[in-house]
Design a binder for these strands. Structure first.
Lengths: 107, 107
DNA sequence: TGTTGACACCTAGTGATACTAGGCATAGAG
DNA sequence: CTCTATGCCTAGTATCACTAGGTGTCAACA
């Protein structure tokens, strides 16, 4: 996938992946890959800073946990995160719909 | 629409709008607005540099023309531009499909 | 006649952000 | 004891849409 394709849509993806329940960063990467049918295979340097950004924005909350000797930072959706998810999902639908309209006209 | 939403997809839109036939920059803006149902209402500072970029990349060709005393730079799709349009359209479909898959999983 | 708005083009600078390329640490398998 | 998978992190870079200005023509209207 081209480099800029994802820009502006990563936040929505992350909120959507965390929405069903608490998830840690590494699992977000795997779930994104799985759920997208291997289309979204994103590097850690993309995911971790984005999760931090979403937490700073108040859309995610995190706490440390330990599993088999490995520490994880587990993220949950806040109420504001839920609202952001809904809003960004709607925005995505509008955007994707408009894209299809324009593409339909192209010969 | 949020600021980064379009990023990485503008080139596809422009190629799609120019594809049906020679078009000048200002008309691209209007056609994009019309065809998208007013979703894409893009400033000149977005369109003109992007058209120049696509011409430098060899996807568009331009020539000056004059209409009622006003000069226009009219763009046409090159063969490479046609290929790029097809490739980017396919990429868009893959991207949009993957987005839908991930969003479907979100509660 | 002067001004306003639509048409039509341009570009230097800014801000946002996905990614590269490194780093650190634990556990289990070979 | 080395390698792979798991799990986290960040400084720096490149890209690109957009802001905010600029130039000029033409028609309508006050």
């Amino acid at each position: 996938m081209r480099r800029e394709t994802l820009k502006g849509h990563l936040d929505l993806l992350l909120l959507a992946v965390v929405a069903p329940g608490p998830t840690h960063g590494y699992a977000v990467i795997e779930e994104l890959r799985r759920a997208s049918g291997d289309v979204f295979d994103l590097p850690e340097g993309t995911i971790y800073p984005a999760l931090h950004r979403l937490e700073r924005a108040g859309f995610l909350r995190s706490e440390w946990s330990t599993n088999e000797g490995r520490r994880r930072r587990v993220y949950s959706l806040t109420d504001r995160g839920r609202e952001a998810l809904d809003a960004q999902r709607q925005e995505w639908q509008a955007f994707a719909g408009a894209m299809q309209l324009v593409l339909r006209g192209a010969t």
